[in-house]
């Protein structure tokens, strides 16, 4: 038995770091000649006095890397689901669009759900909200629909110009303003939806409707009109 190590102050947030363990691991690997452990990702700061057994010398060890292992209670009552402030309306004044927005999900066929009325936008509720500081919020509306019996406001989306403001009203009454940075019409089979429905990264708003030609057999337009906007500065 080696000298008892000094106890750290009892502290719920763990003071010991994984990095420390890794540092010791790398040392141990070196010491016993084992080459099993990849050392590349190990933090640079290593406790030089650590022995392969992991028992440091009796004196307080040098400062350890300040990486803490996050610990939380795992019971059901500690498990909180984040709630987001939802958008309730979107307006593009330059093309005379101002429509209410409701949260939508995914259809049975895996496509985004779109409100039946072309005068209502659907916000993809699994993605980001315009209230959040990162990620892409997606709002789509029918260019025309059976329920509306004609075209809707988003039929004018293809006429929007780069630089036009887009205003999103949130359920808390506040407004987020964006500027159009890109307007494109993309054949549906070639749209990279993973690049549109992005949950991390910069804050963006994407407005989507349909365009191009209409295939009556498939009951589908050939293209999507995709308008990307970024926060107005």
């Amino acid at each position: 038995m080696s000298t008892p190590r000094p106890r750290r102050t009892p502290h719920r947030a763990l003071r010991t770091a994984a990095a420390t363990a890794l540092g010791a691991l790398v040392l141990a690997g070196c010491a016993d000649g084992s080459a099993d452990e990849p050392a590349g990702a190990a933090p640079p700061e290593v406790v030089a006095t650590a022995e392969p057994t992991g028992e440091p010398a009796a004196e307080p060890t040098p400062a350890r890397p300040a990486v803490e292992v996050p610990v939380r209670r795992a019971d059901l009552s500690s498990f909180e689901v984040e709630s987001v402030v939802q958008p309730v309306g979107v307006a593009v004044p330059s093309i005379d669009v101002a429509i209410p927005v409701e949260p939508v999900g995914v259809q049975d066929d895996g496509q985004m759900e779109i409100p039946p009325l072309a005068e209502v936008g659907g916000w993809y509720r699994y993605g980001a909200s315009p209230a959040q500081e990162s990620g892409t919020s997606v709002i789509a509306a029918h260019v025309d629909s059976i329920a509306t019996g004609g075209t809707g406001p988003f039929a004018r989306l293809r006429d929007v110009a780069v630089g036009d403001p887009v205003e999103v009203t949130l359920e808390d009454g506040t407004t987020q303003t964006f500027s159009v940075v890109e307007v494109r019409r993309v054949p549906k089979p070639t749209v990279e939806w993973e690049d549109v429905f992005v949950r991390q990264g910069g804050k963006r708003l994407v407005l989507i409707t349909c365009g191009g030609t209409f295939d009556r057999g498939a009951q589908s337009y050939s293209d999507n009109v995709i308008v990307t906007a970024e926060p107005r500065v």
């Binding site: 995914v106 895996g110 779109i114 029918h142 629909s145 549906k188 939806w193 989507i208 349909c210 337009y221």
Partner: peptide, 12 residues
């Protein structure tokens, strides 16, 4: 999602 089916009539 696999797509955005946002038109039904062909009017546009």
């Amino acid at each position: 999602p696999s797509g955005v089916p946002s038109g039904e009539l062909g009017l546009a």
